[in-house]
């Protein structure tokens, strides 16, 4: 892949929240690239900074309490320090966002058609008739059976899957170059999940947009993503093409995550877990390997003092050197270190 296909380049992004007058970075030095025609998945536990990264890109933070340092390069703009006015031109037009909960992301008192029309009003110079036609076209595109009727309905009259389709229609209304999907299937049941994911893939193929897919569901990742970045405690700890990551995971955290997926064909009575919890924002270890406290059986010498991303295979980056020494603890050993 060459540079021309790069849509969005994030370099050394730090997003901090102010807690009692001190800034704590929820995203701490993330560098990522999104290319054209690509679905980039960002995976991680709750609280590892996935959603913060997404909201940093689209600039949804409360500017009083948040600090964004670093560069988010899109076209010739740096989204990290763009004024609100200029950001409004980018939002909706160039970057669309799909939210997690389709009910709360729709205005309960606006008709579906009007909500989809909203971004067309701001970003296109279509007249009213053309906009109405485009709305129906979009609804048909996201697979809604009766667009004319649905456009006149209110959100509470639709089912969850239909609502998520509407949200997707809103996100793609202005044919954005980038779509950010923040856990788009978490609030849906499994059959609808599959439909929505198929829809995303299909739309991505049609429009050539780059999609950033934020999720904690590794099954979803395996199904749709091209490239995966695994985040832990605000940092990207492993980044690889999807097959490489699933076949050849390196970082202890990635391996533990994959290991903890329940297998239907195994007879193990206990589910595999990762010891401990994601450290809270305030207690985040700022020095050394951030995953070290959760794998205490690995000797301290195995970790780097300032863990950096190393390329272990083409396009496969791993942070820290501890992966070389990592092994899974056997079950009897585990009893000893439970907090």
């Amino acid at each position: 892949m060459n540079n021309a296909s790069e849509l969005l380049t994030i370099s050394d992004l730090h997003t901090g929240f102010s807690i009692k007058d001190t800034y704590y970075n929820a995203v701490d030095g993330v560098s990522l690239t999104l290319r054209k025609n690509e679905i980039l998945a960002i995976v991680g536990e709750s609280g590892c900074g996935k959603s913060t990264l997404a909201t940093s890109i689209i600039g949804l933070h409360n500017s009083n309490k948040t600090r964004v340092i670093g560069e988010i390069k899109f076209k010739d703009l740096n989204l990290a320090n763009l004024s609100e006015d200029k950001m409004n031109k980018v939002r909706g037009n160039d970057i669309g966002m799909i939210f997690q909960d389709p009910l709360s992301a729709l205005n309960p008192l606006m008709r579906i058609g009007d909500q989809i029309e909203e971004s067309l009003v701001y970003h296109t110079d279509l007249n009213q008739e053309q906009r109405k036609a485009r709305v129906l076209e979009l609804l048909a595109q996201v697979g809604i059976p009766n667009p004319t009727r649905t456009a006149r309905q209110f959100p509470h009259q639709l089912s969850g899957g239909m609502r998520q389709r509407v949200i997707i229609a809103i996100a793609i209304a202005c044919k954005p170059a980038i779509i950010i999907a923040d856990e788009p299937t978490t609030a849906l049941d499994v059959t609808i999940q599959a439909q929505i994911l198929d829809l995303l893939i299909e739309l991505q193929k049609e429009t050539g947009a780059g999609i950033i897919l934020i999720t904690h569901d590794l099954g979803v990742v395996a199904e749709v993503a091209h490239r995966v970045a695994v985040m832990y405690a605000g940092q990207v700890i492993e980044e690889a093409p999807v097959n490489e990551l699933f076949n050849n995971p390196k970082h202890p955290y990635t391996r533990s995550l994959l290991n903890s997926i329940p297998q239907a064909n195994s007879n193990a009575e206990r589910l595999q877990v990762i010891q401990g919890l994601v450290p809270s924002l305030i207690n985040l270890p700022r020095e050394g390997c951030r995953f070290a406290p959760r794998i205490p059986w690995i000797p301290a010498e195995a970790h780097e003092a300032q863990p950096a991303l190393h390329e272990v295979a083409p396009g496969h980056l791993v942070r820290c050197t501890c992966w070389k020494h990592f092994y899974f603890q056997s079950e009897d050993e585990m009893g000893g270190i439970v907090e």
């Binding site: 949804l60 909706g92 669309g96 966002m97 997690q100 992301a105 205005n107 970003h123």
Partner: peptide, 25 residues
């Protein structure tokens, strides 16, 4: 609420969000 955020991601201006979307609710 999310729908306000969603509206922001569409590039809607604050004035419109306040008086046309939040007030009816």
């Amino acid at each position: 609420r999310d729908y306000i955020n969603a509206s922001k991601t569409m590039g809607t201006s604050d004035g419109v969000i306040i008086f046309k979307e939040m007030m009816p609710n």
